[in-house]
Amino acid sequence: MSKTYEYIEVSKQDQLGLIALNRPKVLNAINRPMVSEILDAMESFETDIGVRAIVLSGKGRAFAAGADIDEMANDNAIDFELRNQFKDWDRLAMIKKPIIGAVQGFALGGGFELALCCDLLYSADDAEFGFPEVNLGVMPGAGGTQRLTKLAGKTKAMEWLFTGKRISAREALHHGIVNQLISKELLMEETMKAAEQIANQAPISIRLIKEAILKAVDTPLNEGMEFERKNFYLLFSTDDQKEGMQAFIEKRKPHFKGK
């Protein structure tokens, strides 16, 4: 990568774009420039045809233990409104390539919200999640109340957000917040395997599947069905569809080009 970043470490490995939060001394506390850097790196990967999937992780003991409190302690409502800092978060949600997250240690507050921006989440079996904002007299502002509720339902979201209590990896798995628990020693190794597997699928399929699933989260079923159908039709204009079906008929492995 030509760019250098202060708060994250960015690299490429085969078809994967890797982003690692890199403030291990403060358990990767998320500040505004870090979010801008993440967005910048994601948008570069988005337009890089060599990258088929993005892996997001945290260096050191934690994924991210929260937002940088010092940075916002003296802000008032108007500061937030005028800065409109959450637009970066909105743009993160518009990334079309699959984002695979690897969480170890803590994913708290803003760190948990960042984890919830991933499409797939792999978690160390001793990781802990949570929204402790309520203990500071505030609440999540980057999607926490919305995304957690859509994943786990209102009942548990209310409990977790009212109390700020920690959610164990096991509970997170049970409530559909993470995909799989992995021994912490093997977290990156297994996450990379999962990401490579996705990177080897037909990229346009993955892209349109992601789009359709995200659509399902907040559209009525009939609209979602229409949307899915259009994406399904669209895939029949790709070379990869022809290659995939030809390979199936010839009983060989397909070779997808992303076209």
Binding site: S183, E185, E189
Partner: peptide, 9 residues
């Protein structure tokens, strides 16, 4: 499998 991978290293 995970345990053996870790022990194996």
């Amino acid at each position: 499998a995970q345990g053996q991978r870790i022990a194996g290293l």
